[in-house]
């Protein structure tokens, strides 16, 4: 418990001093504001470029504005999150920063758990905050096809769980390869591959990426299978990360 508390505080200090909070905040919140505004301005821009009739074909409503934010969350934002977090675990292994804490009795499992929970909670807070802002903008700028705020919050929770999985996957791959860039690239590849696999109906509900599809459709039907399987993957990957960490850190 001592190690967990010490490392939680250390992660907070690190994220503050290395501007990780700032980067995550911008990477997540920015598009919540930017997307609806761009969508609002798009017809105007098009109108001045092409003739007016075409612009009126683009129909943007509240639902599609939020969906556009979800799209950005699993594209640009994912990139920014990976860029920001990729060095977090591998740096500690490769530059032997753990020797002092470990030789003074730090518990490696607590270090890994503190790291994962810190980033998961931070990103979840930003994502929920992002969805609230995005919803506000969407409702203010557009009028048709309204969706309930409750459903937007559920989408926020689903995306948060997906990010929780991404963080653990990144940590797991970092603990194997000890190179942050490589781990981040692999996460990105798996993300893209699973975006394709999710189209196969039979396995879709066991694929983490399905969380994004569910968030995008604003349904609450059949979401539990996916949530539970992702949480199961998270637990397994965390345990494997801890195991790798113990075996690889000083060898």
């Amino acid at each position: 418990m001592n190690t967990f508390k010490a490392y939680l505080k250390k992660e907070m200090l690190e994220s503050w001093r290395q501007y990780k909070y700032l980067l995550l905040f911008i990477g997540i919140i920015l598009f919540a504001i930017l997307d609806p505004i761009l969508l609002k301005l798009l017809p105007e821009i098009l109108k001045s470029k092409i003739n007016g009739d075409l612009a009126s074909l683009i129909q943007i409503d509240i639902k599609s504005a939020v969906q556009n934010y979800i799209k950005d969350l699993n594209q640009v934002t994912l990139l920014i999150v990976l860029l920001t977090l990729m060095g977090s675990l591998s740096d500690e292994i490769s530059s032997q920063k753990l020797i002092f804490p470990y030789s003074k009795g730090a518990n490696l499992s607590s270090i890994v758990i503190a790291k994962i929970l810190h980033y998961a909670v931070t990103i979840s807070i930003f994502i929920i905050f992002g969805f609230i802002i995005n919803y506000y903008y969407a409702v203010t700028l557009f009028s048709e096809n309204i969706i309930a705020f409750k459903n937007v919050l559920i989408s926020a929770a689903l995306i948060s769980i997906y990010y929780f999985f991404v963080i653990i996957l990144l940590m797991f791959l970092s603990s194997i390869f000890k190179k942050g860039v490589l781990a981040a690239l692999l996460v990105l590849m798996l993300h893209i591959i699973s975006a394709l696999l999710v189209n196969i109906d039979k396995i879709a509900k066991f694929i983490p990426y399905n969380l994004i599809s569910l968030a995008n459709s604003f349904t609450t039907e059949n979401i539990l299978t996916t949530i539970f399987s992702v949480l199961l993957y998270c637990i397994i990957l965390s345990l494997l990360t801890i195991k790798n960490y113990k075996n690889n850190t000083f060898a």
Partner: peptide
């Protein structure tokens, strides 16, 4: 913004 983020991260 993306340029700033890339500079700050890497």
């Amino acid at each position: 913004i993306l340029g700033c983020i890339i500079f700050l991260t890497i």
